[in-house]
Design a protein around this nucleic acid. Structure first.
Lengths: 239, 239
DNA sequence: GCCTCCTGTTACACCCCGTTACGAAGCACC
DNA sequence: GGTGCTTCGTAACGGGGTGTAACAGGAGGC
């Protein structure tokens, strides 16, 4: 798994720098963000294991952002806030945050919470796309679990077969994460041994429907000898 | 069966959040609801295994709601109330609640009751539509057992043949539950072995009468290799 | 008897999806 | 750079599941 990647979101610059610095010293890979736009950019750019989200962002409520992130990315989230009132805490859990920390907090406590959430998230298989009415989004692609529909970045509805939809769901639920054929098959619920090239064919057929040029896939890429990934834009391998 | 899905109904926000949080931590999938409308929405949205219902809702008596839910959905229900008087308890059972808990209650006790009711409900076959004068409703569709009539969401009476009515009854009695052809045939009282494609034809003919576009059914959906479901947002898999 | 409606059967077409085979591309090794 | 092995893309095939049109038998009303 390597070093855990945190996304620290706070519109207050001092706080953001302090958190970033502290967590980097603690051994994490940290990406700072100040607003919703920067969150999306960071998520599109690379894998993120956990988001530390301030609830008091200027332009948008952190709780709303949290709800959206949860819905679209199934991402572990710790909410950070100056408000420790119980109902606020509850609103945090309500939208699906994994934990909730009130400012000012003990740095060690923060570390403990971060590690706890990461551990829990790691224990849960990463192929956690099995939610009812799940919603996944990545790079403009959307899967709406309620309707079981896929829409393209342009907004068009794409007609996928059941199995193709399942595959896309698995990939959307694990952006930037290399998945082996075995992992994909397992996530798809395939029992028994891996049956040859079935996954390959699935990928090919899905590509034919979602890639602009199936010969040069931009979204569903092959990792030779390893498996497949969803759209890792490697050019921006920001340290 | 997977994770049991509870619907927690309480108009008091604090209580609702507390219950929701507690039950989620206990490993259940919980949908909160504050009023009758939200109950209906939740039921239309996905499968629910058990309803935890406060009897003291503001706008409508929980007992009445319970009676209606029982009548329309044949759903396991636990009534929760601050009133522990015996006659109230009796009124609870009277309307068909599976259990009755007085507030304040021991959380562990609540868990035990919830599990007991779920276990009991699981043992009962799901094809429980054989009740006298049954009444079933789902997504705006109604079957009135007294008159043996079906009405559409728009309120129109739909002319179905005997067998089509029976099929719709079975499906209405098992919303969101995938039914195999064998299960359907059995519920319809068909003796002997499954006679080929009879169920398929029944489904096709029923669709022609109740679906807006029979080619793209929104209500009575096919689960390839499995059977049919009534209007589930089938992100099937989901255990 | 004749007509109508209901319902199961059959046949055919279509779609989904895994398998197989073959060629191209990638990679190691010399 | 050449050789050979491995991995991958893809075209073609085939089996199985499902929708549906057509048909036939049966029940019931006239």
């Amino acid at each position: 798994m390597g070093i855990a990647r945190l996304l620290v979101v706070d519109d207050d610059e001092e706080m953001r720098l302090m958190l970033t610095d502290f967590l980097r010293r603690s051994g994490f890979h940290v990406t700072p963000a100040a607003c919703g736009t920067e969150i999306e950019e960071a998520l599109a750019r690379g894998r993120i294991d956990l988001i530390l989200l301030d609830v008091m962002l200027g332009d948008e409520s952190g709780v709303e952002i949290c709800a959206r992130l949860r819905r679209d990315h199934e991402m572990p989230i710790i909410l950070v806030s100056a408000l420790s009132a119980d109902h606020q805490r509850m609103a945090g859990y309500e939208v699906g945050a994994d934990d909730y920390i009130a400012k000012p907090f003990n740095p060690e406590l923060l570390l403990a919470r971060v590690r706890a959430v990461l551990k829990r998230a790691r224990r849960t298989p990463s192929l956690v796309y099995r939610r009812s009415g799940g919603h996944f989004a990545f790079a403009g692609w959307h899967y709406d679990g309620k309707r079981d529909e896929v829409t393209s970045p342009a907004g068009f509805q794409v007609a996928l077969s059941r199995r193709e939809t399942e595959l896309l769901k698995v990939m959307l639920a694990n952006p930037h994460i290399p998945l082996s054929r075995e992992e994909i098959a397992e996530a798809l619920g395939d029992e028994g041994e891996a049956s040859g090239r079935a996954i390959d064919m699935l990928v090919t057929r899905l590509r034919a429907k979602i890639e602009r040029d199936p010969k040069a896939p931009e979204l569903l890429k092959t990792l030779r000898g390893t498996g497949y990934v969803l759209a890792a834009d490697v050019s921006l391998s920001e340290g």
